[in-house]
Amino acid sequence: MRRQQADIVIVGAGMIGLSLACLLAKAGRQVTVLERHSQPQLSDELALRVSALNNRSRQVLRDCGAWPLIDDYRIGPYTSMEVWDKDSPAHIEFSAAEINQDDLGAIAENNVVEHFLWQQALQLGVDIQQVDEWKLLNEGDADSLVEIKVGDDLVFASLLVGADGGRSLVRQWSELPVTFWDYEQQGIVANIKTEQPHGGVARQIFLPTGPLALLPTPDAHTVSIVWSADTALAEQLLHESAERFAKHVETESQRVLGGCKCVSDIKAFPLRMQYARQWQHGRIVLAGDAAHTIHPLAGQGANLGFADVRALAQHLDTRDLKSLVELNKALSKYSRERRADTQLMIAGMEAFKRGFGTANPLVKGMRAIAFAIPNKLTPLKRRLAQLAM
């Protein structure tokens, strides 16, 4: 049995785990990453799972050295956003030009981001271990390190980071409490060929059964859709042909891009809000979806995760990780800062979800007024565009 030593062990080699590993390695930390899967490979076909990355998230990726590679390979920048309500006159649009920027964000394929982050992590000396299972033997305290059994080996670390998604094993092993509720919706994803070019516009239509997003890809006539559909409708859509599904997208989007054709598989995943009431315990801390998952209607899940990465890396900085007192100071500051931001985002998403998920005439009228005001007031529209970034 080998005994391995690391400053920090990160479980999960997704976008959040790998970007954190890169930043910590650049700060001189010895980092080990545990992941079940191998490095995602690049493909000529557009992937189904994408993220809308704002400027702060892209800056994290720049600091990791990965964004120039991602940018050169394939992204879908969007220069404006258009949001409307199918059942009322509510409509708003704003552009990067209104705040003198080149774009508001970029749509990136998750596997492309992960591929180049993995590449950068290896170049920075991160030890990425592909393992089927691991076991937490000791959570560590003031006198001992975290002890993890990985296959036949033992790995010791001053800090264990759970960046292993919504079903985080780190969170389960450390018994950190979770609050959650089911949105009773499924997120349906597919790539759709459109008759008219998307023009670099990110579009979202609020439907009575859930929001439908049309996100621009590098192909001028292809959009990546995320349809957060009520479970009954989702089940119906998933059992229909690709042709029928594309027709539904075309109709529900009010033919904003003309005729539609499905050019990919159609996949779905259940939607639920999940929030860890406690983000850290001793030498263990959570980041990304392991700490929080939110409704995808505003596309902020990945951005919240990258904000976690930035904050955690900054708070750890030059701390003496072996000192539990010093470590707890850093982790407490991190969790307080990020929990406040996350709670605000969860509340906002819940308000949107409930506000647009009703056919109540009074609420519909209020929605129309709420959208009309910023669409006419340039200063407020400018502020919304800044927030979108």
Rank of each mutant, 00 (worst) to 15 (best):
T79N: 08
H198T: 04
D317P: 00
E139Q: 01
A302N: 07
E45T: 09
H248V: 11
A291P: 01
K247W: 10
E133N: 15
T209K: 14
R277L: 10
A359G: 04
E195N: 13
R354S: 12
D230Y: 10
D127M: 14
W173E: 11
R244A: 14
G258E: 08
R283I: 01
S228G: 06
P361M: 06
E139I: 04
L215G: 08
W84H: 14
V223A: 06
V126H: 13
T318D: 12
R3A: 00
G258F: 04
Q236S: 14
W134C: 14
V60N: 03
R339S: 03
G187K: 02
R354T: 13
A121R: 03
I294Y: 00
L159C: 14
D317W: 11
T194K: 15
E133S: 15
L104A: 12
A108W: 12
R167T: 09
Q130L: 08
V112D: 14
I92L: 02
G288L: 04
T32F: 09
A276Q: 09
L327H: 05
Q196N: 04
P379D: 04
I369W: 00
E240N: 08
V126E: 15
V11I: 11
D152T: 15
L286H: 05
N191Q: 15
G259H: 13
I373T: 11
I107L: 12
E250V: 09
M345P: 10
R56V: 03
W118A: 06
A190C: 13
Q129T: 12
V31F: 00
S174I: 10
R338Q: 01
D265T: 03
A27R: 12
A21P: 06
D219P: 00
Q120A: 12
T378N: 10
R283F: 01
V9L: 00
G200P: 08
E45Y: 06
S80Y: 07
A311R: 09
C64V: 10
L321D: 08
S43E: 14
Q59R: 15
S80K: 15
S332M: 04
V325Y: 02
I75S: 13
N375T: 01
